[in-house]
Design a protein around this nucleic acid. Structure first.
Length: 406
DNA sequence: TCTGGGGTCCTAGGACCC
DNA sequence: TCTGGGGTCCTAGGACCC
């Protein structure tokens, strides 16, 4: 029987900030992005007592908790800490999945006996993280990642819980289905319509009924209700499927010139990241959000692969041309997908010219050294710089380490 | 005084081809 | 008189995650 540990930092960004600035310790704080249209990314446990939630806008949070302190997130701090955490994990097993910036899975099936058992590993890791970074984490232990994650969710904060196989049924019996990793509000609602509210009921539901309602995931849902999960750890990160950036604008805009300038900026962010990690895409997508939050995405397939800023931009504008905007624009997004590796020996496959590539290389080098948008096209110069992006989806390294310097 | 940004996976319908 | 069937590619949108 496998033994999986789920290590989940408690209020990670907020804890890191409280550690970096002693004045914030013990206080209700929330980590946010920059700009007035930002939302709460993480809030300290002190702030949670007042009902402050992730995703809330700052005005709502302030209303619930008038003394809350907002801290603009600093992704460099978090990615650095995350990379350091990884060094601790691999001392106990080589099979580590860094699932997100604040969460990891460790498969200690074959190594736990070297360290006095899985619980002992959990306690050592907790102690070590507390000592080195001053932050708390919660450890879940179970035979698979679904249950390990559940164990850590149930033990939060600063806890450790081991759900053994024989205990799974009693834990799941009256647990709401929404608690399971992978069941969101839509599936919760649909299950509720069928009279299924708890994991116990889900596990007992006929597979045929679930298959009928949910198609291929029906069987998986039943297994989840039984605490069974066959997803293996993903130890080596695969190639990305898409690369994108989006931005809620400081103000809703309608002028074509402004929209295009933003699209150029986003295309540059996308192209630059793609070039940095050696990918090119065959599809370009444009996302638009109106002030009423209606959001849609349109995509176009290109004749060839590209990671050239101006080609991405040109296709984004092309898609825009086909849209009749019904209102001002609140958010714009550009992404590329259907990616392939852009290695030098494949260069002939790409429909761009060597000269253009070398110019972009020079621009990238300057921006890498002096910060994003040091060198930028004239039409962008009058525009605001993008807000500092803050997202728990970052990785400590690799393409998903989205670092946008201010 | 309003609601971020980074992703992945799945489904459904239409076009097109043989 | 009554409209194949399988496969691929493409687009849009929904659901979920941190």
């Amino acid at each position: 029987m496998p033994i999986i540990l789920c290590i989940d930092m408690d209020a990670f960004f907020a804890s890191v900030e409280q550690q970096a600035n002693p004045k914030l310790r013990g206080k209700a704080i929330a980590v946010i992005g920059s700009g007035h249209r930002t939302v709460i990314t993480t809030r300290s446990y002190e702030a949670r007592k007042f009902g402050v939630k992730t995703g809330m806008n700052i005005y709502e949070a302030k209303k619930l908790c008038p003394h809350i302190i907002f801290v603009v997130g600093d992704n460099e701090k978090y990615t650095h800490t995350c990379a350091e955490l990884q060094k601790i994990y691999i001392r106990f097993t080589p099979d580590v999945e860094i699932y997100s910036i604040d969460e990891a899975f460790l498969d200690v099936t074959t190594t736990h006996h070297l360290f006095d058992g899985p619980e002992s590993i959990g306690y050592v890791i907790k102690k070590e993280i507390k000592k080195k970074f001053g932050i708390n984490c919660t450890v879940g232990i179970a035979p698979n990642i679904l249950m390990a994650k559940l164990a850590s969710d149930l033990a939060k904060p600063d806890g450790l819980r081991w759900i053994k196989e024989e205990d799974a049924q009693s834990v799941l019996h009256s647990l709401p289905v929404k608690e399971l990793w992978g069941i969101g509000s839509a599936i919760e609602r649909r299950l509720g319509d069928m009279g299924i509210k708890t994991c116990g009921e889900l596990g007992n539901a006929p597979a045929s009924l679930l298959r009928n309602k949910f198609g291929i995931i029906g069987e998986t849902l039943k297994l989840m209700g039984l605490g069974i999960c066959r997803r293996p750890l993903i130890v080596r990160e695969g190639d990305p499927k898409s690369i994108g950036h989006s931005m809620t604008l400081p103000r809703d805009i309608s002028s074509r010139k402004h929209i295009e300038a933003q699209l150029l900026k986003l295309s540059e962010m996308v192209g630059r990241r793609a070039r940095k990690y050696g990918f090119a895409g065959k599809k370009v997508s444009l996302t638009i959000r109106y002030p009423d939050f209606e959001t849609f995405t349109k995509q176009a397939t290109l004749p060839g692969y590209t990671n050239i800023t101006h080609e991405i931009y040109r296709h984004a504008v092309c898609i825009l041309d086909a849209v009749r905007l019904k209102d001002k624009v609140r958010l714009l997004g550009v992404s590329i997908s259907s990616l392939m590796r852009d290695s030098n020996d494949q260069a002939t496959l790409f429909d761009y010219k060597r000269k253009e590539k070398s110019i972009l290389g020079a621009v990238d080098a300057v921006n890498d050294r002096y910060g994003d948008f040091t060198v930028m096209w004239a039409s962008c110069l009058e525009q605001l710089k993008p807000p500092s992006v803050i997202s728990p989806a970052w990785r400590p390294s690799g393409i998903r380490n989205v670092k946008i310097k201010k």
